[in-house]
Nucleic acid binder design. Sequence first.
DNA 1: TCTTTAAATTGACTTCTCTTAATGTTATCA
DNA 2: TGATAACATTAAGAGAAGTCAATTTAAAGA
Lengths: 255, 255
Amino acid sequence: MALNTANSTPDDGDTSSHGHDPQSCEACEVRACGMCSSLSNGELDKLRRITRTREYKAGDQIFCDEEPLQNYAAIKQGIVKLSKILPDGRQQTLGLGFPPDFIGRTYGEENVCFASAVTDVTVCTFPKELFNDYLMRTPALEHKLFQLTLNELDTARDWMVMLGRMTALERTATMLLKFSTKRHLGVMDPPPIDGTVRFELPLTRSEISDFLGLTIETVSRQFTQLRHLGLIKIDQQRYIDILDYQGLMAVSGQE
Amino acid sequence: MALNTANSTPDDGDTSSHGHDPQSCEACEVRACGMCSSLSNGELDKLRRITRTREYKAGDQIFCDEEPLQNYAAIKQGIVKLSKILPDGRQQTLGLGFPPDFIGRTYGEENVCFASAVTDVTVCTFPKELFNDYLMRTPALEHKLFQLTLNELDTARDWMVMLGRMTALERTATMLLKFSTKRHLGVMDPPPIDGTVRFELPLTRSEISDFLGLTIETVSRQFTQLRHLGLIKIDQQRYIDILDYQGLMAVSGQE
DNA sequence: TCTTTAAATTGACTTCTCTTAATGTTATCA
DNA sequence: TGATAACATTAAGAGAAGTCAATTTAAAGA
């Protein structure tokens, strides 16, 4: 069930679970760092009245390209993938959303991309018109959303360099470095001077290839090469150990 | 002379001409459509006090990656190129700025890319700190800048699809289609049903290749192929006639 | 007008990534 | 535990774009 489809019920075949008021914004994992951090408790109370919580299973579509934008959402838990699909089926991932990212094209008439759940996802949703009204009356929230959008633009432009100018090996190394420091809640760890870093890759090889503008097979070959170079170790195809952080930086083409 | 370098004088070897108060915002070409369109005449008057006009010759660097951000700018005339350069010299263009675009990373500490003049360029510049203060006190302006940033994000994501998933021919056709409708002042003409469209390519082949993530030679070969397909005609290497708009759409991979 | 220089095109060849197909691995479920 | 299905890796060959070099075209200056 798409986020934008109104009046859905729990029994309409949707795998996502449905709206109820978020009872405790105070206990919300992203109260302190997301867009809500710009709001006083009083303001938050007003926003909560138009908010519904919704859950999606890994793989679910959250909203769809070119359907009318009906709801915005803020990610509470899980990872969301934004992507575009060309008419012949070629797909390009535009970015990943982590808590507390905001999704939906602010002030837009329709969605300009697909959003789908990479892992199980929990979001707060806001009806477009009501949220727009609220946003117009709350400059502090607009300021916060502006900041989030600026960060997204920075990220998009970094990926443009990767997609336009980097080799398959450099793209793969760059992605691993980004994932190694990207933690939940958007907090970035400082890169380690040495020693190993271990993390779980949340994406399948297919999702990685859509992200890097490559094929599954090419991604796999780059992983193999990074292993043979002694830079990484892979367990169960999903757990990555970065054995040589500086070495990985060196092949990533960034330094 | 970079936009960010303070205290420059007209005789310091800079090819750009230097600051004076813009005497007549009323007569400004972009008064009605740029960020200033969000301001009343009174508010505009306050902004004008911290504004300097500056001119750059084609090819001049306007600001530089990773130098401290000292000034923002609004484009009054000409075309500005934003790009990133990898340590080994590979370059990727991130986007083009036309009047009345705003350049400089809002709320940023340093520039995250290079900006250079593609054609002769005239900008209004604003010292960062003073502009930030003004921005904080002027929600209407922040709202406008937010909208401009959202548009930039949409554009960046469109290019990501192109860079990640399109062939050289598709990229070249896509670029020509974009340029054929992109006019000065950011106004988009409706695409013609049929008949030819003529426009001047403002970029050299080298600049085009940096834009499309290709080499000069590959761009040239795609132009040749589009000519052989009867879709375009090129005069003096710079003037493009689109002979078959629908045909160009078809090879662009978008429809 | 002629010369010089820079930019663009073309051709031959190389390299990198994709395609196709087979094999291997992991997780799920009977 | 074994069978099945989904996911991942590997290999060989094809195709697309890059590299290097030569030629052509356009623009600028003498």
